[in-house]
């Protein structure tokens, strides 16, 4: 028989309750009985920030708003790197659930970014307070919120695709780590983008964290938001990555349990 069909009523599911429980569980387990608890998550990028501030402030002494730019960029980068790292291995880590229950698997991938998202939330408030000396406009803060939504779309798209690929090829996480390590240095975090010839800027903007970071700086710190065309390009990139991630995930989803 060549037909293949599985028709079942969708699981009667309280998705919000399930997401809340998974997020709460991950948070509790991660910081359970650690000396500093949630502060550990904040300390890692702060320590990196202090080192980079000390070293690169003297390398680029004339760069305008160098410190503020570094604070904002580093926190956005930390979210991108940490959440995609968790997302890649998320299905594998929750394999004990996926092979035994009818849990919707996409929820596992999406909730894997919860801890970095909580950290980003705390840092976003700190970043906005940091620029409070020159208060950002309400429009700037709202635009920043829009960029965070785009960043989440990018992260979820990458995580959905990479999590199913990781089940087939177990070195995908290492490849992704190499990409993010190199990506840190091609994203204009520690250097002003102006130090590179303008003909290379387009290439830098093709790496998703670059437009997010540059547009956030422009909205919150410089008070000069990017153009409408630039925003449309960012939206196309973010939701293109999300769409591609969903397509790849859906293609591999029926065999997820078999690859675990």
């Amino acid at each position: 028989m060549a037909t293949l069909a599985l028709t079942a009523p969708p699981p009667r599911l309280d998705a919000r309750g399930l997401i809340w429980t998974l997020v709460r569980t991950d948070f509790k387990v991660r910081y359970h009985r650690t000396w500093l608890g949630f502060l550990w998550a904040l300390l890692k990028p702060i320590s990196l920030l202090l080192v980079l501030l000390t070293v690169f402030s003297s390398v680029f002494p004339g760069a305008p708003n160098f410190r503020l730019n570094l604070v904002l960029s580093l926190f956005l980068w930390d979210f991108f790197a940490e959440s995609t790292k968790s997302g890649v291995i998320s299905l594998h880590q929750k394999g004990y659930l996926i092979t035994k229950t009818r849990l919707p698997r996409w929820i596992v991938v999406v909730t894997s970014i919860s801890n970095p998202l909580i950290t980003l939330g705390v840092y976003s408030v700190l970043a906005i307070l940091c620029v409070a000396g020159r208060p950002p406009s309400l429009g700037g803060v709202l635009l920043f919120g829009v960029y965070l939504v785009h960043l989440c779309a990018i992260v979820i798209g990458i995580s959905l695709a990479a999590s199913v690929l990781f089940l087939r090829w177990r070195d995908v996480n290492q490849i992704w780590e190499v990409i993010t390590s190199a990506g840190f240095f091609i994203t204009p975090i520690v250097f002003p983008i102006g130090v590179l010839p303008e003909r290379y800027h387009f290439l830098l903007y093709c790496w998703p964290p670059t437009p997010i970071i540059m547009f956030s700086r422009a909205a919150l710190i410089d008070g000069a938001p990017a153009t409408l065309r630039a925003h449309l390009c960012l939206a196309a990139m973010a939701f293109g990555i999300l769409g591609a991630g969903i397509l790849l995930y859906r293609r591999h989803a029926p065999r997820i349990a078999e690859h675990l």
């Binding site: 028989m1 060549a2 037909t3 293949l4 069909a5 599985l6 028709t7 079942a8 009523p9 699981p11 009667r12 996926i98 092979t99 035994k100 229950t101 009818r102 029926p254 065999r255 349990a257 078999e258």
Partner: peptide, 22 residues
Amino acid sequence: KILSGIYAADAGAVRVRTHVTP
């Protein structure tokens, strides 16, 4: 696992008309 919707069958048809708790 196929009846529970965890594995996909290679061929054949499965119809589950009620909510299942595996």
